[in-house]
Amino acid sequence: MNAPPLFLPAASEVEEAFRTALLDGEVPVPAGLSDGAGQPAGRRYAVYRNNVAVALGEALESGFPAVAGLLGPQNFRMVAGIYLRRHPPTLPVMPLYGAGFAAFLEAAEALARWPYLGDVARLDYALRQAYHAADAEPLSPEALTWLAAEALPQTRLRLAPALQLLRSPYPVIDIRNRALGLGDSIGSHGQCALVTRPEYDPVTDPLPQADAALLERLMAGATLGAALEETGTDPTALLSLLIARRALTGLETTE
């Protein structure tokens, strides 16, 4: 390896100005930029401003399809425009962009009439992360039957990296489905959303509250016995669903 240079040449003044003005439409077009024939750059600079806002805005729109559906294109662009200026991505991997979008929506006073937007954004984000999550070989359905019944209470579940659980006080799955034209009815109760990825396309299942509480304990590393004791919930239905969704990848039994 060559030794790294001790002093990297600093940015010139016009470079600094170019950078600062990109995300702030109030700042005038920096001096020192031209059309190549002596005229000031003018709206040529606006092309870059526009490209940045459009590129980041489109990343948010494709990453949060249900939020975009609920707000409509015009409102979404306005909200995204504020978010991307306050919270531009911190790394150049766009599938990870928007981790803080849900909290931003919840904190926005203008959106207070739609308090469920944050959880819809969380579900959009969870599905996107599940899409890119690591592959994992699911446990064969027979594996559970091999396990001696007396060992079950001491057993911990290993779950697929794509699996996520979102507990919402709003009917978040119904709202998301309707926003995307996938369903019409919206229930009156909160929903717990189980996100899994059986093969390549993530799936959302509503979980009963009791099963969600059980799964939360199991995700935290509790044994089946301890989780059952704490929640009083029979794990049969949850285990069947996890197996059907190829989300159970292993069992660890401790003595």
């Binding site: 950078r19 490209n51 991505p89 911190t90």
Partner: peptide, 13 residues
């Protein structure tokens, strides 16, 4: 720029 990724290809002198 300063840890913010702008998702565009921007010019330099």
């Amino acid at each position: 720029h300063d840890g913010a990724y702008l998702n565009d290809l921007l010019p330099l002198p």
